[in-house]
Each structure stands twice: as C-alpha cells, then as structure tokens.
C-alpha cells in the first residue's frame, strides 16, 4: 500500500465524507419530510437504516465488494462513498422526523387557520422550526462519517486510514498517530464549519 502525502490523504478522506454525507443529506431530508406523517413508511425506512447501522463497516465493505465488482468498482472510492452514504442516513433521518414532528400543533393549526398553503407551511413554518434538529443530525452524521471513512482505507479508498493501517502493520506508533490525528482534526473541523452554517441559518430565520 503506497503511503501518499498527507495532503493526498486529506483530499481523498475529505472527498469521501463530503460526497457521501452530502448525498445522504440531499436524499434523506426530503425523505424525512415525505415520511413525517406516514407512520408505516417512516417505520420501515427507520428500520432499514437501523439495520444498516448494525452492520460493522468492514463487513459492509465486504458485502458491497462482490456486488460492485460487477461494474468493476469493487474497491476504491465508490464502495467507500456508498457505505458512508448508508451509514449517515440514520442520524439525519431520525432527527428530521423528530424535528418535524415535535412542532407545537397550535403553531401549525394557526398557520392553517390563517390561510397558509401546505407548501408555505412546510417552508416557512415546519422546516425553519425543525432546522436545529436537522442540522444536529447532519453534524452527527458528518463526524461519524469522518471516523468510518478511515476504515475505507482497507478497500483502497485512501484517506487518513492509510496511515493507521500502515502504522498497525508496521507497529509504528507515530504513523498511526498521524492518521488518527488527521481524521479527528477533520471531524472537529467539519463540525465547527457546520456549526457556523447553523448559526448563519438561525440568524436568518430567527431564534426561538
């Protein structure tokens, strides 16, 4: 396994996290909006996501490899992104559902009674009120995803995991630490950035 530069590791690690968590956010938040008043559908989706989360990441890579090998992408970035995409769904979906369902019913009742359309209620009332919960889910997913992405080095996806694996193999503590430090610094950094985004959004739509 070639040990690339620290910058290379950072780039591939960051790419995997951003793409997979971004894709998950783009699909799961609308899914949560759709499923919020569909108890059967939301139970099924949550059940599926729970199931995914119980599979250890290494096992998930193992499961994905033969399937993706059909398209000749069994190892590398593609399985890493898919696995991470699946893992990041649960916190975001759960938080989106909780955020949307915990809105004071009298607020929605008065919005309807004042003549807002279903669409206006969603975008002006429900989503802004659920936003802190949704953002919290996104942050959890991103931090968790950064950690899980380290393991993707086992299937040749690169990233800080490469240092860790190499370090373990060579019993080189310093190399392990470089990888571990890189991954955790990235997790903290991403959380900090997303926290900033949340602050800006809250500033725009008001606090509670």
């Amino acid at each position: 396994m070639p040990l690339g530069s620290f910058i290379d590791a950072f780039q591939s690690h960051f790419f995997i996290v951003v793409v997979s968590v971004g894709l998950a956010a783009a699909t799961v938040i609308p899914l949560g909006v759709w499923a919020r008043n569909r108890p059967v559908a939301s139970t099924l989706i949550l059940g599926f996501d729970n199931l995914i989360s119980t599979i250890p990441s290494v096992a998930l890579y193992g499961l994905l490899m033969p399937v993706l090998a059909i398209w000749n992408v069994g190892i590398g970035t593609v399985p890493a992104v898919i696995a991470l995409f699946l893992y990041s769904q649960l916190p975001m979906l759960r938080n989106t559902l909780v955020g949307l369902r915990n809105i004071d019913p009298s607020v929605v009742d008065s919005a309807i009674g004042m003549g807002m359309t279903e669409r206006q209620i969603l975008f002006k009332i429900r989503l802004p009120l659920a936003m802190p919960m949704i953002m919290a889910g996104l942050r959890t997913s991103a931090v968790m995803g950064t950690g899980v992405a380290s393991i993707a080095a086992y299937i040749g996806a690169g990233g800080f995991g490469t240092y860790i694996i190499r370090g373990i193999a060579a019993s080189d503590r310093q190399t392990i630490l470089i990888g571990a430090f890189g991954a955790s610094a990235m997790a903290i950094g991403i959380d900090f950035l997303l926290g900033g985004v949340q602050k800006i959004l809250e500033g725009r739509i008001g606090k509670r």
Binding site: P105, S106, S110, I112, M114, G115, T117, L129
Partner: peptide
C-alpha cells in the same frame, strides 16, 4: 386558503410562530 385569509383566527394555544419576530407574525396574513 382564500376563505381563511378573510377571517381572523385566534386560538387558546396562541400559536405565534416562535421563529418569527412580533413584526413578522403580525405581517403574516
């Protein structure tokens, strides 16, 4: 929705929009 906009509606739970200022709340309709 048109009907409701021509009728004021006040409920026991008050139902002010917590993420909007008083100004924005009153300006809604």
């Amino acid at each position: 929705t048109k009907l409701r906009r021509s009728m004021g509606y006040v409920i026991q739970g008050i139902g002010l929009f917590p993420h909007m200022t008083i100004w924005e709340n009153i300006a809604t309709v």
